[in-house]
């Protein structure tokens, strides 16, 4: 039964995608393209573009897309539920333990070390996105031609606005989108 297969596939992807959405893409390719053959490799490339283009978490976007391709809207729902179930059970358990024991000295000690780690990890993921936006897919190079000056200018201006006015980040990104549309699409 196709719904059961979809659920199984996405349950697996949900459980094994650890460490952020970009880590999930190789697993999705492995299960969906190589395993079940539900998407061709070029359809998978399309999926990555959709993930970038649309709002929402990458794994959920992919689940909806694949589910819809395979079995229409009900398929999208089954795939979405599938990828959320495993993690939800685990995180609920973690939530229970955390809120019960957060004041224990050992937990406080662990969290005081993890807080700086989280900031560093966010910085590292952020820098990867900045490099992609400024230099494109080939990454950093010293050659000035490949540096996207318009993106740099938009990002620097947006950063200044954010630091100064504490603007809602959603409105800021929409503004940058409009500006990008005006400049790049001329």
């Amino acid at each position: 039964m196709i719904y059961l297969e979809l659920f199984k596939a996405w349950f697996q992807i949900g459980l094994f995608s650890i460490g952020g959405s970009y880590a999930a893409l190789p697993i999705i390719k492995n299960v969906i393209v190589d395993g079940y053959g539900w998407l061709s490799i070029s359809q998978f490339a399309d999926l990555v573009v959709i993930d970038e283009m649309a709002p929402g978490p990458i794994i959920l976007n992919s689940a909806t897309f694949v589910g819809a391709q395979v079995a229409g809207f009900p398929g999208a729902i089954v795939a979405t539920i599938g990828c959320l179930t495993g993690p939800a059970v685990i995180v609920s358990l973690i939530a229970y333990l955390y809120f019960k024991y957060q004041d224990l000295p050992v937990i406080r000690s662990i969290l005081s070390i993890l807080r700086p780690v989280v900031v560093a990890l966010i910085a590292s993921a952020g820098l990867a996105i900045i490099m992609l936006s400024f230099w494109g897919e080939h990454g950093f190079s010293s050659d000035m031609d490949s540096l996207n000056l318009i993106s740099v200018a938009i990002a620097v201006a947006a950063f200044a606005v954010l630091r100064k006015y504490k603007l809602n980040p959603v409105i800021l990104m929409l503004g940058c989108g409009l500006l990008g549309g005006l400049i790049y699409a001329r």
């Binding site: 996105i129 900045i130 318009i150 993106s151 990002a155 947006a158 950063f159 940058c176 989108g177 990008g180």
Partner: peptide, 15 residues
Amino acid sequence: AMLKGMRAGACAVIA
């Protein structure tokens, strides 16, 4: 084109 602009905006938000 709008996507490119939004990506630049995302850089600022993350920074």
